[in-house]
Computed example of a mutant assay.
Amino acid sequence: MDILSELLSLLKPRSYITAGFDAGGHWALTLDDLAGRIKCYAVMSGECWLTMDGIGDAIKVSAGDCFVLPSGRSVHISSDLQTKPIPASEVLDPNRSGEVVTYNGGGDVLLVGSRFEIDGCYAEFMLKDLPPIIRVDTSSDKAKLRLYLDLMMAELKEMKPGAISVAQNLSHMILAQALRLHLQTANEREVGWFAALLDPRIGKAMEAMHSEPSRSWSLKALADKVGMSRSSFAAHFRRRVGETPMSYLTRWRMVCAAERLSLGREAIAQIATSLGYASEHAFNTAFKRVMGMPPRQYGRRRQQVSLT
């Protein structure tokens, strides 16, 4: 399985709402319901602005743009940069799935998209390296994403039997395609595992660790895998990913372990061995350091959550 597919599989995004937003005049909203969620929207017509406190310049999105909000931080969306935003939760029904909501008269900008609930147990580890706002151009050769968006908009407008189910399935396809397109066009100066997949050598090393997490990888073995010297590989990996190869490998192993612990089907010793640890004690130490609690406690907590 490729790394992007693994990300979506582990996060288990569940489409919570799929809706349209038709706004007019001067307006500004703060999307204040993003904690533990990913939002993915597309501008079907018109234009608006995205801003986030403490994060760079305002971003203008126009018809043909798609944007993903994966960080959980509040984002302001507005018709202009002068109008003071109010919380979106004060004016939008959180259970409006399937509706096209008209706000402030409508007619100037039309958005369509979904809010995804995600598994919070290791979402921070998987999403922390993604940009807080991902903007994707859906025009020109981005035909698949545009097709999915048009189909979703048609489902929401026509509301034929099964429309909400179809729209939610389309929303998953839109999210995956938007992240894929961002991966193809990400800035080479971005730091983090997601952007590093663009680097042929670093991406190859990461794919190797993901495909064989139980292997006793050494810095030299990974460097040899991609045809680099050990020192050059270590420096290049840290510059692109933001951490050392061994730190990344440990973090990925713990994410895999967390998923298996949450299912409660395997003994800890079995998980430890399958992920390359010589002893359960060594695995327990690594897990607690990365995840903040012992694996047994983590497994019990996750299983209790799944029962509620």
Rank of each mutant, 00 (worst) to 15 (best):
K142I: 14
Q82P: 00
A235Q: 15
S171K: 04
Q304S: 15
F125V: 08
D108N: 09
H182E: 12
A163R: 10
A23F: 10
W252K: 03
V75N: 10
T51N: 08
Q184E: 15
L183D: 07
F116P: 06
S140I: 09
L10A: 10
R238S: 12
A272G: 04
L170I: 13
G36M: 06
D2W: 05
S78I: 00
S274H: 11
R230L: 04
S231T: 14
R14D: 14
G107S: 05
K220Q: 10
K60H: 15
S306P: 06
G56Y: 02
L110T: 07
L183E: 11
D129V: 03
R146L: 12
A154C: 12
F237I: 04
L29D: 04
M152G: 06
S15P: 05
H182C: 13
V100P: 06
T138G: 04
K144G: 09
S211G: 09
I202P: 05
Q168R: 13
I38G: 03
S139C: 10
A58W: 06
S274C: 09
A221H: 08
D93W: 01
V191F: 00
C40R: 08
R180L: 15
S216G: 09
G46V: 10
N284A: 12
A205D: 02
L130F: 12
A257F: 00
A235L: 12
P245T: 00
Y148R: 03
D53N: 13
S45G: 09
S74Q: 13
F233W: 00
S306V: 05
E266Y: 07
A176F: 10
N104W: 06
Y41S: 03
G46I: 09
E124T: 05
L111T: 06
A258F: 03
L181M: 07
T83L: 07
G56W: 03
W49P: 05
D199M: 05
G46Y: 08
A258W: 01
F194I: 00
L181Y: 14
N187A: 09
A267R: 12
T250Y: 00
L10P: 03
E259A: 11
L261R: 07
G24E: 09
A186S: 15
A286R: 04
V305K: 11
V241G: 07
L156K: 07
H182V: 07
L34F: 01
H236S: 07
S89Y: 07
A23V: 08
S279N: 01
E99V: 01
A176L: 05
D150S: 15
L7G: 02
R265N: 11
L110Y: 06
E207P: 01
V226Q: 04
Y41V: 03
Y277P: 05
R135F: 07
A123P: 03
L8I: 13
L222G: 02
V75T: 13
R146M: 15
R296V: 13
A167T: 01
G120Q: 14
V43Y: 02
A63M: 03
E90R: 14
F233E: 00
E90N: 13
E212R: 14
H236V: 04
G64L: 06
I118K: 02
C66L: 01
V68T: 04
S9L: 12
A278H: 10
D129G: 14
A163E: 14
D53W: 09
L29V: 06
G107L: 11
S218E: 08
V112Y: 01
E243M: 15
V136K: 07
Y103L: 15
F67S: 02
L130M: 12
P245L: 05
G292Y: 11
S114K: 01
P295W: 02
P295G: 05
